[in-house]
Computed example of a mutant assay.
Amino acid sequence: MSISVTRDLSQPLGHVVHVRDHQFVTDGSIEEGGTDSGPSPHDLYDAALASCKAMTLVWYAGRKGIPLRDVKVDVVRDASAERQGVYKLATVLHLGGDLTEAQRQELLTVAGKCPVHKLMTTVTTEITTALA
Rank of each mutant, 00 (worst) to 15 (best):
C114M: 02
V25P: 01
L108H: 05
K72E: 15
T125G: 06
A90D: 10
T124P: 06
D78S: 08
E101T: 11
A132D: 14
G62V: 14
I66Q: 00
T125F: 09
R7G: 03
D78C: 06
E31Y: 11
V19A: 10
E31W: 09
H18G: 05
R77N: 12
G33Q: 11
V92W: 00
G38H: 02
V123L: 11
T128A: 09
L49I: 10
G85D: 10
G38T: 10
T129H: 11
T56E: 01
E126K: 14
R83Q: 11
S4G: 09
S4M: 13
A111R: 01
F24H: 08
D46R: 07
T125N: 14
L13W: 09
G33H: 07
H18A: 10
V110R: 04
G65Y: 15
V110F: 01
L107V: 13
L95T: 10
A130M: 00
S2A: 12
H22Q: 10
A90R: 00
K113Q: 14
G33N: 13
A48V: 06
R63S: 02
G28N: 14
S4T: 15
K72F: 12
V25I: 07
D36A: 13
L9F: 06
G34D: 11
L95H: 06
A50P: 03
A111G: 05
G34I: 04
V58A: 05
E126R: 15
G33P: 08
P12Y: 01
G65P: 09
Y87R: 04
T35Y: 00
R69N: 13
V19H: 12
I66M: 03
T121L: 12
A102K: 04
K88G: 01
Q23A: 13
C114K: 04
V110S: 00
V17R: 10
H117G: 03
T121H: 02
S10A: 13
V75H: 03
L107I: 13
P115V: 09
C114H: 03
A90L: 00
V58M: 09
G112W: 00
R7N: 12
I3T: 15
